[in-house]
């Protein structure tokens, strides 16, 4: 198709009474076609797979963190309970100082303990 015909067709395509379907077909016949590369479909699918596996990895990491946190938290709670029970059995009562191991210590003895003098 000659350049002048193409130009005419382009201008005509924007007329309000033109048949856009017919014009787009004529333009396609004239060589005005747009396509992606041959392997476009495969590229899209591999990008989707890559994004999917990255998300799975991210979810697994979060899951592992949660699992580790619960294990540590449960062990900690169990240790505290055992400590409280042992304090109660040894001293017959529970106080905050005994829980911190300060029941027999005075301020001065703590300073001695920390400084070594």
């Amino acid at each position: 198709m000659k350049a002048s015909v193409i130009k005419e067709l382009l201008i005509k395509s924007l007329d309000s009474d033109a048949d856009p379907g017919d014009i787009s077909r004529k333009l396609e016949d004239a060589g005005i076609s747009y396509n992606f590369s041959f392997e476009f479909r495969d590229k899209v699918l591999s990008r989707i797979s890559a994004a999917g596996s990255a998300k799975v990895r991210e979810l697994e990491l979060v899951k592992n963190f949660n699992y580790a946190f619960y294990r540590i938290a449960l062990t900690g709670v169990a240790a505290i309970v055992i400590l409280l029970i042992s304090i109660f059995l040894m001293q017959g009562s529970l106080s905050f100082d005994s829980f911190l191991g300060l029941s027999d210590s005075y301020d001065e003895s703590i300073i001695c303990l920390l400084t070594g003098n």
Partner: peptide, 13 residues
Amino acid sequence: QNTEERKEASEIV
């Protein structure tokens, strides 16, 4: 585009 005429049409657009 490959052919001259098609190339020209495509370039115009």
